[in-house]
Every structure is written in structure tokens, then in C-alpha cells.
Design a protein around this nucleic acid. Sequence first.
DNA 1: TTTT
DNA 2: TTTT
Lengths: 189, 189, 189, 189
Amino acid sequence: MRGYNRAIIMGNVARDPEIRYTATQRAVASFSVAVNRSWKDQNGEMREEVCFIPVVVWGKGAEVCERYLKKGGGVLVEGRINVRSYEAKTGEKRYVTEIVADNFQFVGGRRDDGGAAPYGAQDGGGSFQSQGGGSYQSGRGSAPKSYRDSQPPQNDGFGPNDSFPMDISELDSGAASVAPPEDEADIPF
Amino acid sequence: MRGYNRAIIMGNVARDPEIRYTATQRAVASFSVAVNRSWKDQNGEMREEVCFIPVVVWGKGAEVCERYLKKGGGVLVEGRINVRSYEAKTGEKRYVTEIVADNFQFVGGRRDDGGAAPYGAQDGGGSFQSQGGGSYQSGRGSAPKSYRDSQPPQNDGFGPNDSFPMDISELDSGAASVAPPEDEADIPF
Amino acid sequence: MRGYNRAIIMGNVARDPEIRYTATQRAVASFSVAVNRSWKDQNGEMREEVCFIPVVVWGKGAEVCERYLKKGGGVLVEGRINVRSYEAKTGEKRYVTEIVADNFQFVGGRRDDGGAAPYGAQDGGGSFQSQGGGSYQSGRGSAPKSYRDSQPPQNDGFGPNDSFPMDISELDSGAASVAPPEDEADIPF
Amino acid sequence: MRGYNRAIIMGNVARDPEIRYTATQRAVASFSVAVNRSWKDQNGEMREEVCFIPVVVWGKGAEVCERYLKKGGGVLVEGRINVRSYEAKTGEKRYVTEIVADNFQFVGGRRDDGGAAPYGAQDGGGSFQSQGGGSYQSGRGSAPKSYRDSQPPQNDGFGPNDSFPMDISELDSGAASVAPPEDEADIPF
DNA sequence: TTTT
DNA sequence: TTTT
């Protein structure tokens, strides 16, 4: 059966994203998100727990992460759950589970926000996004707040994926793109 | 505040998708999905209800819909909730709510499946997908089973949207695309 | 086919929730959420749009809404999409679509937060929840921040629903409940 | 920040669920779901991959799982991602990630369905659900097809959770519950 | 009928 | 305007 696989989490970035590059220069950022959860136990006592969920972002999004996601910042992440395995030096098979994100968005502000960071925008949230046609300008002054994978993506659940149909260089090239016409709104369904 | 907006529904296509084109030749398919829900009422009686949820698909996906989604078929749809308004002839403002899909997937089979349809795949499900680089071949023999919007999309919740950064013609042009390297798997996070 | 139906939205409360009661005294709160979305159009211009999504909350949650959700506040809502119809005075059939929430959570803070409100918690977010056993204390000093329907609920997608298996009065009665044992963690799967 | 944590996956049960009981007799079922994903790589070749995602179900749902979820069957699971750690005999800290489900539903049919199983229902899908008031009758002839946690629970993302406010025995007792009134529909919002 |  |  064709599967479906989607995860949506919101929490605080637990440590600054780390970026790495594959041999072919594809970027991968990794970080984890601390998701707090609280509940009342059988004695009516309030209890809390944090869950640290590892996240990876491929391609252009990786760079956005590295630049703008900072430890402590609030973030909403959307992606697919991926379980990969590797062989430990001991020969055992070990498993690693992480969310392969195709979409993320800054949320809220930091308690101790120094000021200029993308977090703590005047309205307690913001967003950034890089779209296919190469809309992301790394050198812009205004901080991006949200991001959505521009590649045919992750097929989180629906489709294939890790083989993005579009190269980063392509994204950066600012290739022309055509937006939907203004008249879409008046189509009488 | 930067919003988030995502809907995931699964049910049966209530009527064959209808396709239309905007002045600029952008395709839009519309159909509705019958989502069944059942519960036990206070008397322990089983009760059922259907909810018909309107869905629209823009661009290339619209054509995939028209060709493969058929009345009665099972489908999983992912997208954002959109509320648009229009003025009735009486002058009143009317509202229309629909899911603007960026992803859909065939699910299960039809009771009375004649055979060749994309539904009723041998394993009770299947999928198709059109990815950025133009992977969808309209004339192929094998029926696609799932679809994910190849445009930077929908920003369902995260990002912008209806102005897709990539034109349909582009999608159809089969422009080269570079997939992630084989070695991605061995990156030691 | 058994359907699935789930919507997750985040945005700002567009107007203070209104509460009503059915003949049998079941509470229903209704409000709408302004979900902002921005994107770059074909000219690279940033564009924005808001979508106002109607939400209803049944039962105890309705009261939580009324007390704590205020116009302008950030909120994350989870529920199922419901389309109901009614006959207009003109005889036409009209449709209303809304999210029947089973879960909601305060997010971020208000720009002009006066202070004591549940919004604007020191860490830019918070949550409240009323659980089956009657954990919600209306008179408490500390503002709740999140809520999850304690009734077998909504079966958003999965199950039945509007016939909640538990009465509001029951919820308030603080009926005993048994939490999972402390030792759950050490279960060797 | 109050977190949010939700995962929705659909795939095939990879092995028959195993059930265990805590010292206090709370049931826990565990199994994993094989989620298939396919995509076209840079050479236009179709590729496929499976991801095995571990799932646990607490309480009454565990018994439903054990009785009705069978290896190979299609299933849709909804829950929160949980990462727990334990100390290996070597002293190292190891991590286990699983979905703590609060909702699941049978989907589609098995390729080699022998006949009577809950899978392969005549319409290619079905559902079961156990609601608070004790609607689940273990001895019933008709196979349940879907399940939703009846406890206030999971607060997947929103709330606390693992301390369910309602005991299984309670669920089985068929304690009275009050469903929403028939007249809900006519409330003029 | 709308929010930041 | 509706599906199984």
C-alpha cells in the first residue's frame, strides 16, 4: 500500500542548527526541537515533560535554518518521519529517527531576545519562505521567517522523495517562474 | 502572526472532477470528497454521517485529477483550507470553503472496479506523483496513483501560495533536475 | 470507506468567542481564526492574504474558550472540518463550513497585552487543558493555556463524534480517574 | 513554549501487535507500520523505500489492536512522536522513537485476505471506535474497524498526557454518558 | 461579521 | 450538486 507519513511539531530549537554538505554539495542542516508537554497526573498534580525531536532539512532550507534558527527560538516543523539504520562499531544495527522537514516556520519570540533576531518580531511571530523560482535572497536585509521546501518535495507520505527534482543551484539561479493569474479569484466554480 | 493551515482528509470522490482553465491557461480541477464518519450515540446505536468537502487542485495536478480520480474512488487529500467570498446577485456576501490541495493520493479500491482503473491496484492502494523536474508523463501506460504539487506551493500555512513560482509549461518541459546524491544516506549526523 | 478528517490551523482569534447553549444545556462556543499567509508573486513582490476560518467548540471546551480566548490572541486549533447545510428563507440550500475543534492551544503573545491575560505568558506561549477526570478548575488563579477535548470525541476522521460519551456535568464532577503507572517508562519493549 | 506534536501515518502493519501489561495492569500494544514511499530519481527511474515506524497504543486501544490489527493489514495511525532513552548494558544512552497512538483506523484490504478478517471489508475500508461511555464490546461479532482513544489524552502536542484520566475498567463499565442533543444541528450560529 |  |  502506498503510504502516508506526516509529522507536525512545534517547540523550541534545542541547539543551533549544524550544517554539513554531501560530496555533491547538497546542504543538510540538523538540529532538534524541544517539545514541551504537560498534564495533570492522577493526583491532580501538574507534570511536565520535554521530548527532543531530531530534525533534518535538506538543500536550500538547510541554509535558511543555519542562518535564522537559533537555540531557544520557537519553531513549527512539518515533514515526514524517517527511520534510518546504521551499523555500530560493535556490529549491531542501530536506528535513528528524525523528521525530514519540508516546511518550517518561526513562532513566537525568545524570552531573552537580544533584539535584531528574526525571533521576537513585533507581532510575536513571522515567517519566511523560499519558493521554487529562486525567491530566496540570502543577502537580504529582512529576516525570513518561514520556509517551505521548493523542491517537488518529500512526498511526505505521498511521494517519493529524497531525490529532489530540482538542484540547489537551480534554486539560486532565480529562474523565472510564472505565478497564477490575478483572475483566479473570479473563476465561478 | 504568521499562520499555519493544513487539512488532511480521506474519503471517496463524490463526483468526477471537473476541470476549468483560467484566462492564462492555468488548470483548476474541482471535486468533492465524501468523508464518512460513524459513532455510537447515547443509546449505543451506531450512527453515520457523511460530510462532503469541496477540493480544488491547481496546475498540473488538476490534469492528473481529471484523468485519474473517478467518482467513488478512495482518495487522501492534503492541502490548506480556503474561505473565499463572492457577492450573490442579491447583493449578499456568500462564503465558499474548500481545500486547496497540494497533495493527493489514491487509496483502496472500488467495489465495482472494472479492472484497468488506477483504483483497485492489486495491493489495495497506490500512488502517483508529479515532481518539479517534469516527471509526469501524461501519455504513460501505467496509471499514476499519487500526486504532490511540484510548485514551491501552497505554503499551506507556512507560506504564500496561489502564486506558484513555476509555470505549468515549465513542468511539462521536462527540465533537467538533480536528485540528491546516493551518498546522502551515509552522512554521519 | 471509513473517512479521515483533520484540520490544524494556527492564527489569531478574530473576535471574542461567543457561547450558546443547546436545549439540553450543552455549550457551544464559536469564533473565527484569522490565518495569515504571505507569498512572493511573479514579480517578486511580497503579498499577503488572510483567511478567516470559523471554529466551534462543544462542551466544556466552549467555556474554556469563552473565558480565555480573546480577540487578537494567537491560537492553534485542531479538529475536523464540518460542512453543514441549512435552508435559507429563500428556500435555497446554503452551506456552512467550520472546524469542530477538539483541541486548542494558546500561542505567542499579544502585541498590546495588558498583563494578566493568558496570552503573553513570559515564554511566548502556554497551554491549558481540561481532561476527563475534571482537571479544569474554573476558579483557578493561573490561566489555562491549552485544551483537549476530554470526550471520546470528534473522532475527527476516525470516529463518530458529536455524541460525546461524557456529559459536561460529569467533567466537572471530578470523577476519579486512573493515570498510567509510574513504571510505564521502564517497560522493556 | 507549549509544544505541539502530531504524527499521521498510513501503511501496513509490519508484524502482529504484541501486548504487554504494566504492573498496574495497564495494557500496551506495540507493532510497527511499514510506510512505503516511492519517487523518481534523477535518471527518471522509479525508486521505492519503506520506513518501519514503531507504534505503541496504551490502554483499551491496545486490546483492540491485538485483536484486530494483523500483519499486512492497512492502517492509519495518529498520535504523538515520543523519544525515550534507556541505558544500554554498555552504559551508553540509547534512544527509541515511537508514535504513541491515540487514534487508528483500518484502511483498505489485504492482498491475500482469507475472508473473515476485519480487513478487506466489502468497501475496502472500515473503522472501529471505542468511546468513553464504554461502547467497545469485546465479544461482539462484528469486527471494529477504527479506534480513538477515549481518554482525555495524548494532548498530543497540546496537553499532557500519559496520565489518562480514565481507567480501562471504567471504560468497560459502560458508565452512563450524555450525548449531544439531537437539536444541535438547528442551532443558528 | 473579522486578527497580527 | 454528492461517495462507499
